Structure formats: structure tokens, C-alpha cells
Amino acid sequence: MIRPYREDDFWDLASLIERALEEYPAWSFLPGAPTNHPRGFRIWEAGDEIAGFLFLLGEEYKVLGGLYLEPGRRQELDSMLNEAFQPLFGDPENLALTACAEMGGFSLVPALSSLGFDLVERLELVQEREKTFFRKPSLPSDYRLIPWEPRFFDAAVALLEKSNRGTLEGLFLCFPSLATLENCRKLLQGILEGDFGPFLSDATGLLFDDADHLVGLSLMVQSNEGEALLYEIALERGYQGKGLAPCLIAHLQEASWKRGLDRIRFDYCGGNRAVRWLFGQDEVQVGRKEEILVWRSPRYRAMRKNPPI
């Protein structure tokens, strides 16, 4: 039986984690103690005992942050996942759910595929300055491209929401984290405040048309490894296919390299071929690979079928 987390569960869960790690040292769990996000916990009970638990991050889209099972109860994993996720499928507030394909050395693919999750490949791609032939495309005369300016915050939020709403996957993201204005506002505010690494204002590009309307942007931060990390790129739908995206890419490349950041890193969904084309098919190297499982709600699929004009 699945139930919510209670305050008196804390030490029972801590003890369960210790026992589980002794048997399965590879169990995966994202940062965040039970006291930080208790609402995300789903407790799996067998009789009067806690047999396992899982932890969900997020609101409109949720991520399976981790799970633990009592040693000897591996056969109950599928039942626990099924009972924990079924109520979420019927909640109209949930846009999507994602999970790693493997946790603790156990594949979640059979159980979650049977629940309607799709398997998606996500790659980490790296572009190195010394292996790149830099191209600086000509920006059409009726457009202008400038570094980040705080006064365009609201326009950037609106562009992120407009360009991502209705897409099955964003350019780099595998789940619709940018499907609402509030989520876009939180994301952009977090980037500016350094939640994802130091914000690179000069490498972040803002693209305007001749009516001074913001139609494109790229968001850049510096990773813990000292790389330039492209966190998101957006281009309004009516302006796609006009050769403007390469101008955004050239801007972030040039600014990053001037900072001495000789490596640019970005995530890539295997089905999105446009990403590799933008950066140069032969000039990016594949870093980390992983498979994730994604469930998309009927509401989100409807948004994709009826994108904004």
C-alpha cells in the first residue's frame, strides 16, 4: 500500500536507506533529505512495516528523484511503481513525469513502459574551441542581436513560454518544464541568480526584429567544471527557418571563448537533429549518455497538437 510521508517516518526511512545501501550500493537518490521535500515522498507499506519508498521532485512535471526497497523485496518494485504513479496519471495538474531508465542497477523500463512511459535518449554534447571552425553568419539588416539586459526579463519569460509550449520536447529538455509562464519565470530567475552556475550575461543573446520585438534568445551559464553551458535556446515559431538560430549560436560561441571558456556543453535529445546541425555536425563530441523514461499527459499532448501561432 502506498501512503504519504509522516513526520514519524524519518528514522525508519534513514534505517531503511542504510540497509538498502548495504545490499545495493548503487542505489540512486537525488540530493534532498526527507525533511526538505516530505510532500514528494510515497511510502510503500507491507502490513505495518515500511517496505520501501520513492521520492518525486517537481510540481506540474515530476521527476523520480530516487527510490529504496527493503532488502529482499526486489520483486515488489513493479507493484510499488504502479501504485505510486497511477494516481498521478489522473491528476489534471500533472503535465509530465520522468525517470532514469536505471536506478540502483535495476532497469525501470519494463515497469514504466507498461504504464505508458516512452524511452528517450539524452546525450551530453561538447564543442571544443580548438576543434571548431568558427562561422559568423551575417545577421539580416532588419534584426539586432545584443547581450543580456535585465529590462527585457518579462519579454524573455514570454518568449520562453511561447516557443516551448506545444512542443513534445524543447530544443534540449525532455520534459515540458517551460510549459507555463510561471515555470518560465522561475527558471529564468533561477538562472539570473546563479542557481545553475554563474550567469554569463555577455554570452546570453537577445535577438530583436525590426519592430523591436524579442524573437530569440540563448541562456548561458558557467558549469562547475569551468565550461560554458547552454541552458536553453528559444526562437519564436514564426522566425524559425530563417537562418537566425546560427547567429545566436555564433554569439554565444564568440563570447564564451573571449572569456577563456574553451568548451561549450549542452544536452541533446536524440530525436532532435537540428541541434547538432546548428553547432556543426562534425564539430561536437558525445559526452555522457543516458536513457530516460518520459510520460506525457493528454493535456500536454493536446498542447503539442495545437501549438500557438
Rank of each mutant, 00 (worst) to 15 (best):
E128H: 05
E291I: 04
E124P: 05
P140C: 03
V126C: 05
D202Q: 02
R288H: 12
G58S: 06
P137M: 01
I17D: 06
L77T: 15
A245C: 11
W295H: 06
R265D: 01
L67M: 04
F134D: 02
V63L: 06
A84N: 10
Q75N: 14
G166T: 13
I17L: 07
E23N: 09
G66T: 09
W148A: 12
G271K: 13
K136V: 14
D195G: 00
P31E: 07
F134R: 04
E128S: 10
F153R: 11
L187C: 01
A111E: 03
F106Y: 09
S223A: 05
L13E: 12
R3E: 11
Q222T: 08
L145W: 07
G241S: 15
G52H: 03
G216C: 12
R185A: 07
A26E: 11
K162P: 11
G116K: 07
E18K: 15
L69R: 03
H37M: 05
F199V: 01
L54Y: 03
E182P: 10
G72F: 00
L16R: 11
T167C: 12
E49D: 14
L69W: 02
R237Q: 12
L97M: 10
F117M: 02
W257H: 00
N164T: 14
R6G: 15
F53W: 03
T35G: 06
A111I: 04
Y268H: 10
W11S: 15
G194W: 00
P71Q: 09
F153G: 13
S79R: 13
M103S: 10
E169Q: 15
L230G: 09
P198T: 00
F41N: 01
I264W: 00
L145K: 08
V294M: 01
K242I: 13
E128G: 05
T98W: 03
S138G: 04
R276M: 09
F208R: 05
S256V: 02
A99L: 07
F106K: 09
E236L: 15
A302M: 08
P298V: 07
K242S: 10
R73L: 13
W295I: 04
K131P: 04
A46G: 05
N183Q: 14
E254Q: 04
R165Y: 14
